[in-house]
Amino acid sequence: MDRIVSASREIAAAPEVIFELIADPAQQPRWDGNDNLTEAAGGQRMHAVGDVFRTLIYTGDYRENHIVEFEEGRRIAWLPSEEGKQPPGHLWRWEIEPAGPGRSKVTHTYDWTQLTEEKRLVRARATTADKLAASIERLAALSEGA
């Protein structure tokens, strides 16, 4: 089984518009195609590697998300973890490339090559390219024409 899954699509919105929806955790429940997130408090906008944001997931538990890659307007990736624990090894990445005036190519990747916790493997296997594509579709709907 492939442990790196991704989806890409061109969106009729500038990279900075799309990036802002991703880098502001309070916006993430609006576009989460995995239907995993229920809310995130405002005021957590990401700015650099080392930042941590907190989200409430569908189980009622909170997750701390550790930023491990960051390039403003272009790339952001995080490792989620249970509160106060080390990340178990799965990574969410967003890459945004300019694709002409007011257009962007968006790639969303889920990488669970380092995930070893047995209890998380079932959900990891269920995170398919179509779920990643659903997040991109929702981002497109929120950002196109913005």
Rank of each mutant, 00 (worst) to 15 (best):
P15L: 04
P87N: 12
T59D: 14
W31D: 11
T38G: 09
M46N: 09
A99E: 06
K105D: 11
G89L: 08
P15C: 01
R74L: 11
D35H: 13
G43Y: 02
G42L: 05
F53P: 00
D35S: 12
P25H: 01
A99G: 07
V106I: 05
N65F: 14
W94L: 00
Q44D: 13
I67N: 15
H66I: 06
L37P: 05
D24V: 05
A41G: 13
W94H: 09
T55C: 05
D61C: 00
E72R: 08
G100K: 09
N36K: 07
A77D: 04
E20P: 04
S81V: 02
N36C: 02
Q27F: 06
D32Y: 07
Y62C: 01
L21K: 11
W94T: 05
L21H: 14
K85H: 07
A99I: 04
I96K: 11
R103P: 04
I11H: 11
T55H: 02
H90D: 09
V68W: 05
V17Y: 14
V68I: 04
E69A: 14
V106C: 03
Q86L: 13
E71S: 11
Y58H: 03
Q44A: 10
W78R: 02
A77V: 12
Q27H: 14
V52P: 04
E16F: 07
G89N: 10
Y62M: 00
I22L: 05
K105E: 14
A40W: 10
M46F: 06
L21D: 04
E39L: 03
K85A: 13
V17N: 15
F53H: 08
Q28R: 15
T38C: 09
F53E: 03
G50E: 07
F19N: 12
D61G: 02
R93D: 04
K105C: 08
H47F: 01
W78Q: 02
A14Q: 12
V52L: 05
I76M: 15
L79G: 00
G102Y: 07
E69P: 09
P25V: 00
E72V: 00
A12K: 12
F19E: 13
L56M: 09
G102K: 08
G84T: 03
I96S: 04
K105N: 13
I57G: 00
P25W: 01
W31S: 12
N36Y: 14
I67M: 13
D35N: 15
F70D: 03
I11L: 13
E20D: 15
Q27Y: 05
K105P: 01
E10I: 14
W94Q: 01
G42W: 02
R9S: 10
E83N: 01
V106S: 02
A48W: 08
R93I: 10
G50R: 09
D51I: 03
R63E: 12
F70A: 00
P87Y: 11
P87W: 10
V52Q: 02
V49S: 11
N34W: 04
V68M: 03
E16H: 13
V17T: 15
E82Y: 09
